[in-house]
């Protein structure tokens, strides 16, 4: 199978804290790949690494066979036109209407006439069901609508790769259903490759073609939804079933309670 993004033996740390310790991960072209894991393990960091916003300490990231890490700045900006990212907050420009937000990448990167841009924007907004909301300001949108508007902006330039950062976080069941449907449909209709970073197990198992589970700085499980469900790794099972205690401990590391009360902990 051909891979659009290949991450090879990546190590990344923030200050003293190691976030990834030699992870290898491939994203097959045309598929939806999910990256799951408990919060705070740097799933968003992974997307920023792929987008070239952060530089890894070691290892390489290939986007369409070219190394993002060693690319020149110019080449990186060119590569970024072929990828887009849906941020958790949507990250819409708050001083522009929904229409202008979606038109923004088109105006920046193409010389299309205003008429054509208006048509493209209308089509993109239609795809996410927000054509009627084109003249609203981002502050007038609900959380789910803002994310859909941001999605319309993300697909405005017809990218090859789209990265979703926690698309389901904080959504009501209806918006969640809409987003799940949109991610699947857009991926297939626009011939995209999608990476979904999330910790919403149920939704991901229904749409992802391939799943990686990250924990403890490395990949702890990978496979199709069925393979993941059948995994015999304790860690994977704890994550899938939401057990409070297990290999990922309930307690943040601390000296024993009795000792610390008796003043011996220090």
């Amino acid at each position: 199978m051909e891979h659009l993004v290949e991450i090879d033996n990546l190590t990344f740390s923030r200050g003293e804290r190691v976030i990834y310790d030699g992870i290898t991960l491939n994203v097959p072209r045309g598929k939806i790949t999910a990256v799951m894991g408990p919060s705070g393990i740097g799933k968003t960091t992974l997307l920023r690494l792929i987008g070239g916003q952060l530089i890894p300490d070691e290892g390489d990231i290939l986007f369409d066979k070219e190394s993002i890490v060693s690319m020149s700045r110019k080449a990186l900006y060119k590569a970024r036109r072929r990828m887009s990212m849906l941020f958790q907050s949507g990250a819409l420009f708050t001083d522009m209407t929904v229409f202008d937000n979606v038109a923004f990448p088109l105006k920046e990167h193409t010389d299309l006439s205003d008429d054509i841009i208006a048509t493209i924007v209308a089509l993109k907004l239609q795809a996410v069901g927000l054509r009627g909301a084109a003249d609203l300001m981002p502050s007038e949108l609900s959380g789910g609508m803002a994310r859909r508007a941001a999605l319309a902006r993300a697909i405005a330039l017809d990218p090859d790769l789209i990265m979703y950062d926690e698309p389901f976080a904080g959504q009501d069941p209806i918006s969640m259903g809409v987003l799940v449907k949109l991610i699947r449909e857009l991926n297939d209709a626009l011939d995209l490759t999608s990476i979904v970073v999330t910790h919403d197990v149920k939704e991901v198992l229904t749409i992802a073609d391939y799943i990686y589970i990250l924990a403890d700085k490395r990949v702890i499980g990978k496979g199709t939804a069925q393979q993941i469900k059948d995994s015999d790794s304790e860690l994977v099972q704890q994550f899938l079933n939401g057990k409070a205690d297990g290999p990922v401990p309930f307690h943040y590391p601390a000296p024993e309670l009795k000792k610390s009360f008796l003043g011996e902990g220090k």
């Binding site: 907050s89 990250a91 708050t94 990448p105």
Partner: peptide, 14 residues
Amino acid sequence: ATEQLSSLEMMAVD
């Protein structure tokens, strides 16, 4: 804070 700067970067706009 609202990731607008990051999203500009990801849209290949400096």
